[in-house]
Amino acid sequence: MAMAGFPRGSLRPALAAALLLGAVAAGAGALAAGPSLDPARAGPCVEDPKLMRRSHMDFLKHDRDDTVRRGIRPAKHSLAGCVDCHANAKDGRVLGSDGHFCQGCHSYAAVKLDCFDCHAATARPAQTASAVPGAAR
């Protein structure tokens, strides 16, 4: 039993190391590339982009309760606001491909995105008209 198991056992650390290295390399490669998102509308975001990347869901959740339950409109962090700014210049949407802003990043981060089961993924007409094409990364 031990004899038969020995050669296979000895391969395991090597295999694991190779797999780990491969994963790290692949991960690093992907991280370096980042998600390739369509450039969104120019101009500053409502918060520092670094903070938004980490905490946008918390801002949205906080302000959604303010808006839905207390009637505070417009909210500083509203999902419709996100969509207005970050909609694709061509089709006015934040979903559709991995190049679209919301879908692209969520697909890159492998986080389920269910906001748009109910919410419109299309920018409001007025905002699209005034949308300025350009990068805001």
Binding site: G71, R73, A80, V83, D117, C118, H119, A120, T122, R124
Partner: peptide, 29 residues
């Protein structure tokens, strides 16, 4: 049923109950 064509001010989706909002999104403005 699953919904499509939602308005930006009126999110709605399958599996929830809804009713007249008195157009709250307009009234608030």
């Amino acid at each position: 049923e699953p919904t499509t064509g939602q308005k930006p001010d009126v999110p709605r989706g399958k599996g929830c109950v809804e009713s007249c909002t008195l157009c709250v999104h307009k009234v608030d403005r």
